[in-house]
Write a protein that binds this DNA or RNA. Structure first.
Lengths: 333, 333
DNA sequence: GCAGGTCATCGAAGCGCTTCGACGCGAAGG
DNA sequence: CCTTCGCGTCGAAGCGCTTCGATGACCTGC
């Protein structure tokens, strides 16, 4: 059973190869009757265009690269949601997704771009001083970044507006009348890596708190139960008047609740807790967490859209910040 | 800056195009001096073979599809580890990975295979009666499954030996002198989906317990703290003599520990807990969990190896079961 | 010293597709 | 009635690579 080529379809439909091509691509007008005949032949023969040949002739592979940071400290569920939405959205644009890990580094990007394996690149978890950024600027292939490097000039970046997310949490706690609040962030290594989003959340939080005239404190937070417990205890000891806690660390969110329980503080009666995390985590916690969600799906969809627009030659905004949304649940009052 | 082609390299090195090709592929003997000259030109010009052209001419895309079940109820960290190891291993064989979601279904598989976008397929989370399995049998492209469908005849399947994993837990508890034990499994929907691994673990556990003459109980378990708490409480009420607990549910493992703490049972003094989960989860728990790890990396690596072997035309075993390994930590005695 | 055999290299024929220019034909315009 | 135009279709030229058969150059052995 040899694989069906466009020539087979052409013969079966009694037209030229080029006509079949035009029917399929819609790049030239074809009469309705011919179109139908060709389409029927395609169906009957079960024709699927050969991807390599198409890429070679059209200089478009219809594949985009997705570069994921498959390493420690990441927020897996969010990453997964993101990947899913990228794949799904890309398919809507008739593109496929090539999965790459960040540790292939700049060479890897260069390789897939230069070999025309992909038409464009989507990078996640960009760092403040990312060695891949200069390369991206040089590459002929368009790219979209999730997150912001130090200098986003000439790039296309998408992200949740983390500063606003931090601020939103502080605003919410201020509205509820809290006067002394704190933020527990990502593990220390995330800050050291300089990924940006963690800092921006802290900054947004602290600024907003200050604007409200509140006492605010922000510090990194590891992910094991014991360390979370210790951190919460320390915080409570140092700041007896503390009544509002923001957790920007998905793995730690559940542990914070556990620690407070053990330390004899009721949520939300004694301490209000607000998390910055995906909705499913917030809903599953007990009590359900008031949270600012990380709209992973939106980010993925938006990133693909921007990339597709760039592939069409359109110009797109350098920076797209997604508005955070606060959902009030049982953990704050 | 036009992209560099093999013809440019040939001209630069003063040889024929075919000679360059043979140098690069090693499929014919080339003198050391010529080889070096060509290699130098490749480096100087920064040549990268065009993937489409290569695929077209050689009928090998050097890309494999990875079909992931990006949906609820899955164990994300394990999935991620698995994906990482697949990508990394594939790169070692000079292959790239096309990411697909399971909800593209059989059509999707057919599409990427028929279009020669990929040379082979790796499917995760295969179900007992998976509609994609018949298609896989028909496909010219080789495939490897993670997990087992009802009838693995003619396929290539890799998985952790879950029956042995369950048995290993029972053995361990028997060795420690426990007489009454129970297993808390995956959420009910996982069993309903008939993915197989959950059942096999239960069966292995129950069989081994019976062999040891122990009283054993096995039931599904949801993932929220409240439901876990309720399940543990119920179990303890029904079976006052229960002293050993096996948890085959990564999300629930931490909650089980929390529930036992609240219910006033010390671990491991009153109840020994053994988890079937990745090492990092087990280590992060408090107390650290004795666990049988799910060797996601091994599975990924092994799956890619098998696929590569099939791509080379070798015949490989239909079924590869990876031996589970028990690591004793603080939660059992 | 020449047939026979290696070894290294070359040239050309595709691989399956897109795209460009050309062409025939009927309709519209003068 | 003849030109002009545009629509629908065709043929052919690549796209960049692999691979097969052919060709010398050189060595071996009798």
């Amino acid at each position: 059973m040899r694989t069906v080529t466009i020539a087979d379809v052409a013969k079966h439909a009694g037209v030229a190869v080029s006509t079949v091509s035009y029917v399929l691509s819609g790049k030239r007008a074809i009469s309705a009757t011919t179109r139908q005949r060709v389409l029927d032949s395609v169906r009957v023969l079960g024709y699927h265009p050969n991807a390599g040949a198409r890429a070679l002739a059209s200089k478009r592979a219809k594949v985009i690269a997705l570069v994921l940071p498959l390493r420690a400290g990441m927020n897996l569920p969010v990453l997964m949601q993101f990947a899913t939405s990228v794949v799904t959205t890309a398919r809507q644009y008739d593109h496929d997704v090539l999965l790459m890990t960040a540790d292939e580094g700049a060479d890897g990007l260069h390789r897939v771009a230069a070999s025309a394996l992909v038409d464009g690149l989507l990078l996640m978890d960009v760092e403040i001083h990312d060695p891949r950024v200069p390369l991206l600027r040089k590459l002929a292939e368009p790219s979209v970044l999730i997150g912001f490097p130090a200098d986003p000039e000439g790039l296309t970046c998408v992200d949740l507006d983390f500063a606003r997310a931090g601020a939103l949490c502080a605003d919410h706690l201020a509205d509820l009348g809290h006067r002394e609040i704190a933020l527990l962030g990502a593990p220390r290594v995330v800050y050291e890596r300089g990924t940006g989003f963690a800092e921006r959340t802290m900054a947004g939080f602290v600024d907003a708190a200050r604007r409200h005239g509140m006492e605010a404190d922000a510090r990194p937070c590891e992910e094991s139960f014991d360390e979370v417990h210790a951190a919460v205890k320390l915080l409570l000891d140092e700041r007896p008047g503390l009544s509002g806690l923001v957790v920007h660390n998905e793995a730690a969110a559940g542990h914070v609740l556990g620690a407070l329980r053990i330390l004899g503080r009721r949520v939300p009666e004694d301490v209000s807790v607000v998390a910055i995390c995906p909705d499913d985590i917030a809903e599953r916690a007990s009590p359900a967490l008031t949270s600012v969600l990380i709209p992973a799906e939106d980010v993925g969809r938006q990133a693909v859209r921007l990339l597709m627009a760039k592939l069409e030659g359109q110009t797109v905004p350098e920076s797209t910040l997604l508005e955070p949304r606060l959902t009030i649940r049982e953990s704050s009052r």
